[in-house]
Amino acid sequence: MARKSAANPMASCIAEGESGYVMTLPASMQGETATQIADAILSARTNALIVDATAVERIDTPCIQVLMSAARLWREDGMSLTWTGRSTIFEENLDTLGLSAADLEVGDANHA
């Protein structure tokens, strides 16, 4: 069962799946939601995590920083963090910061 906090509106974005946790990112990920997104992601720590960013229409740098930090934590924990999809906006924002989707992947077939 997913570890959710009723006080965190982002908690509904994450759920326990068959092989770990699945998180569907919301359309708008503005800076003020970064802490809530971090809390939701951390509720899945020490488990495999699959993230879907296909709905993302707006994402600010603080939220990308949260996702980068999550990738680092998952790497340190030896767990996989993979992506099922990324919107064009999401990809463009990563590119603007000099990042790629590979920077956010951990433990899939292409990344150690």
Rank of each mutant, 00 (worst) to 15 (best):
A71D: 02
A40F: 10
A34F: 06
A27L: 13
A34W: 06
D52M: 12
N8Q: 05
E18F: 03
E92Q: 15
A38G: 08
A34P: 01
E91R: 14
P26R: 10
A38K: 14
I14E: 00
T96G: 10
N47G: 09
D60V: 03
P9Q: 04
A109Q: 13
P62G: 05
M29T: 03
P62H: 08
S12E: 11
A15K: 10
W74Y: 03
L104C: 00
A55G: 01
I14G: 01
I37S: 03
G98R: 04
A55C: 08
M10D: 03
A27R: 15
L49H: 06
A40K: 02
C63K: 02
L42K: 13
T33Q: 14
V66D: 01
N93Y: 11
T96F: 14
L104N: 02
N8S: 05
W74C: 00
A102F: 12
I64Y: 04
L67P: 00
R75N: 07
G31S: 12
R3Y: 12
S5G: 14
V22D: 11
A38I: 08
A34C: 01
P62E: 02
R58M: 15
L49E: 05
A7G: 04
W74T: 04
A48Y: 02
W83N: 00
A40E: 07
A6M: 13
E105P: 00
A7L: 14
A48C: 00
T82W: 06
R58G: 08
W74L: 02
D39P: 04
G31P: 00
G17L: 06
L94V: 02
S43H: 01
L73R: 09
D103I: 09
L99C: 05
V56L: 05
D103T: 10
M79N: 06
S43P: 14
G107D: 00
A11V: 13
S5R: 08
T82R: 14
G107A: 03
K4E: 08
K4W: 07
P9I: 11
A53C: 08
V22F: 12
R72V: 15
N47Y: 10
T54H: 12
D52I: 10
E16I: 08
A2E: 13
D77E: 15
Y21L: 08
I89D: 06
L42W: 11
H111S: 11
S80W: 01
D103E: 06
L97E: 03
W83I: 00
G78M: 07
I50W: 01
G107H: 02
E92T: 13
R45Q: 09
S69T: 13
G78Q: 05
L73P: 01
T61V: 14
A2S: 13
Q65L: 08
R58E: 10
S100G: 10
R3L: 11
E105T: 11
L49N: 02
A27F: 06
L94G: 03
M29W: 04
R86V: 09
H111Y: 09
A7V: 11
L49K: 00
A71F: 07
I59L: 07
A44I: 03
L25Q: 10
F90E: 01
V66R: 00
V106F: 01
A11H: 09
N8T: 01
L104G: 01
D77P: 05
W83H: 04
A34E: 03
E57V: 09
A44P: 06
V22Q: 11
N110S: 09
P9Y: 12
I59S: 01
T88L: 15
S28Y: 09
A112P: 08
H111M: 15
T54F: 13
S43D: 07
Q36S: 10
A112T: 12
W74A: 02
A34M: 05
